[in-house]
């Protein structure tokens, strides 16, 4: 892994970006979003292995095209390397991380400790999730914890950050400077409630939102209409979830086995009708990104390519997001945050 060593030499992993007034974190993602740039985050598939190289290999591919990498927390209730572990490896090498925290596996004592630890390691972004039920994963006999829910988790971390105290009221000497995120699923019932629910997350402290996979554009547009009517797009940054489908079969499998994923029949039909289903899945994803980008109030995309990381960079590049952004960056007076300068690709 020559490339990574090179990166290591260029980075000063211990040094976060200088703090800016009005920013909660010293991370890159918050800067990009507050600069009004169309942001890209991508999910790293966690390894089933204790080998750090597996994390670094995947991160290297993703980091070229994104502003922050999501470290998932046993998503789908499947056991993998932990989000804390992945975040520790990534921050050590200077990458920008969105550390996911799910309420399924840890209680408030463990989670608040992890938040302090994460911030100490240089994690600048935390995504608060409820978590999929244990029935969905490889350990259905596990005890589901759910001591907090995503909203009380948001409020807890916000209190830790802004009021320097734990949920118990006990003082924190140095608060965790993190940019807080939450998930939203516009594609599950009760549909009319979903935008309001996102608003509730915003009042609990969410500053950015990453949505569930979007395959149903009309439904997403209706959701965004409601979001704009409520003025929520002005109170937080909304990143729409996207990702390539490998085949019609994979799409059907996801729809019936992964909680909360809605894939319209028309999408599956389009894949089925294609000669090369994988290429069609990729094309579909690029088209979606281009259409989503035009929707007012969308601040970026969150790419989830289940076991297809190598595709992420092609998808982002071919969608044209980067060119649009670079053109703007060149004319922008704001601090230059070109993704191609490794010392700034980070955090």
């Amino acid at each position: 892994m020559v490339e990574r060593r090179d990166l290591d030499l260029l980075h000063d992993p211990g040094a976060p970006l200088p703090s800016l007034p009005g920013h909660s974190s010293r991370g890159r993602l918050e800067r990009v979003l507050r600069d009004g740039k169309f942001a890209v985050t991508a999910e790293l598939n966690p390894p089933d292995s204790a080998d750090p190289e597996e994390v670094y290999e995947r991160a290297l591919v993703l980091s070229e095209v994104c502003d922050a990498i999501n470290a998932t927390d046993a998503s789908g209730a499947n056991t993998h390397m932990s989000s804390v572990g992945i975040s520790s490896l990534l921050t050590r090498a200077g990458y920008a991380v969105v550390m996911q925290i799910s309420c399924r596996d840890r209680n408030r004592i463990a989670i608040q400790g992890d938040v302090l630890g994460a911030a100490a390691m240089g994690v600048a972004n935390i995504l608060c999730l409820t978590g999929d039920g244990v029935q969905a994963g490889d350990q259905p006999a596990a005890k589901p914890v759910f001591d907090l829910d995503s909203i009380s988790l948001l409020e807890t971390i916000r209190t830790m950050r802004d009021e320097s105290r734990f949920l118990s009221g006990r003082k924190i000497t140095r608060p965790p400077q993190v940019f807080l995120g939450a998930a939203a699923n516009p594609f599950a019932p009760p549909y009319e409630y979903r935008a309001l629910h996102m608003g509730k997350k915003i009042s609990a402290g969410a500053q950015f939102i990453q949505t569930q996979y979007c395959f149903d554009l009309p439904l997403f547009e209706r959701f965004m209409d409601r979001v704009r009517a409520l003025g929520l797009h002005e109170k937080c940054f909304i990143l729409a979830g996207v990702g390539p489908l490998a085949s019609a079969r994979a799409a059907r499998w996801m729809r019936s086995n992964v909680p909360g994923i809605h894939i319209p029949d028309a999408v599956i039909g389009r894949l089925e009708g294609a000669n090369n289903q994988k290429a069609e899945g990729k094309r579909l994803c690029i088209e979606l990104i281009q259409q989503i980008r035009e929707i007012k109030g969308v601040a970026g995309v969150h790419v989830m390519a289940y076991r297809q990381e190598e595709l992420v960079s092609e998808i982002i590049t071919q969608s044209g997001i980067m060119e649009a952004r670079q053109a703007r960056e060149r004319t922008s007076a704001a601090p230059r945050l070109s993704r191609y300068r490794p010392s700034e690709t980070n955090r």
Binding site: S150, A183, N185, A188, P189, P190, Y193, P259
Partner: peptide, 28 residues
């Protein structure tokens, strides 16, 4: 089943039933 007190999770099924207990309507 997730004892959520602040609103539904993202796993609610298209028919409005629960992600964890498919035979039950989602309480939210």
């Amino acid at each position: 089943p997730k004892s959520l007190r602040n609103g539904p999770c993202g796993g609610v099924r298209p028919n409005g039933h629960c992600e964890v207990k498919p035979e039950m309507r989602c309480v939210w």
